[in-house]
Design a binder for these strands. Structure first.
Lengths: 158, 158
DNA sequence: TACTAAATAAGAATTTTTCTTACTTAGAGA
DNA sequence: TCTCTAAGTAAGAAAAATTCTTATTTAGTA
């Protein structure tokens, strides 16, 4: 797929969320797709963007990422280190955090989602409107160089 | 219970975790117990301590909280705003976050814990040693002044 | 094409967290 | 009890992360 077509689709996604499709937003989204699975912080997104877009400002990246997360276009991922991290994958709501390598791995599992949904329906929290449910597994890789075997980072089409 | 007895117990808990029972650590722990359920950040703990312990330094509070969390004496709670928050309750592994009031509410539920444990046993992650499992519910209170009805912040004895 | 609300750049300012160094102390052992 | 030493702490500088302010620019609309 050509870059122009690609960007055309990104533009449409932004508009579909009710967001103005500015150049900055498109390239931030593009960078996030490129960093998919890495759960970058604003600074890392900025570093990736800057060479091709030297005029963009770090503050814009921060704001844009927040805006995207607010619109549910992307996902804000809570990190054990406290920083704000993001991922283009808005469907995986669970994460595995390794305190050795400090990496965050997406964990997408339909069965788990169903399990939680069923549980929450039975519990039926009063006076609370759930927006998202997320499971965090914290721990350590046994062999830090190797992958966690269940990991399935899904491909995001486009 | 008298304060001296109280502190004696705190001291023993620290020692049980293999930590030196310094005065600073005892008062930090004490403050956290007092703030239980509020999930304070280092700064808030510091503010509570300072009047009675003007010589303690904020850096020490940061370090002490990290040390406690590392020793599993207390709990580090991931906050939607990015800051590092803590709670003396080391047993509740799940939290409800309200984006209106920015409060974090402990959510302790044996059934949920069992459900997750059973699920993870079936999945059996390879190359990963789980230290903790936590569920985050994000959303909004319908009536911000009122409580969420399922909330059960357990009493920590002593 | 012109208009307007929204978005952005730039960088100052703030907030949060870590780090460094010299000093102090808890707990262990004599 | 006294002494020793590794560990912990104060103080504040420094770094890192994030937000804010204001003037300027732009996307989408009429």
């Amino acid at each position: 797929m050509q870059k122009s077509t690609h960007r055309h689709t990104l533009r449409e996604r932004l508009l579909a969320c009710g967001l103005k499709a500015t150049h900055q937003r498109i390239v931030v989204y593009e960078a996030l797709l490129e960093l998919h699975g890495k759960h970058p912080m604003a600074e890392e997104v900025y570093q990736l963007l800057k060479p091709a877009n030297p005029s963009i400002s770090l503050g814009t990246v921060y704001k844009t990422l927040d805006t995207f997360a607010e619109a549910n276009l992307i996902h804000k991922v809570l990190s054990e280190e406290g920083g704000k991290r993001f991922d283009a994958n808005a469907s995986a709501h669970s994460h595995i955090y390794c305190s050795n390598t400090r990496e965050i791995v997406d964990f997408e599992d339909e069965e788990l989602d169903a399990l939680l949904q069923e549980f929450l329906q039975r519990r039926n929290l009063g006076n609370f409107e759930i927006r998202s449910v997320s499971v965090q597994l914290t721990g350590k890789k046994v062999e830090p160089e190797k992958q966690i075997s269940i990991t399935r980072v899904p491909k995001i089409d486009l």
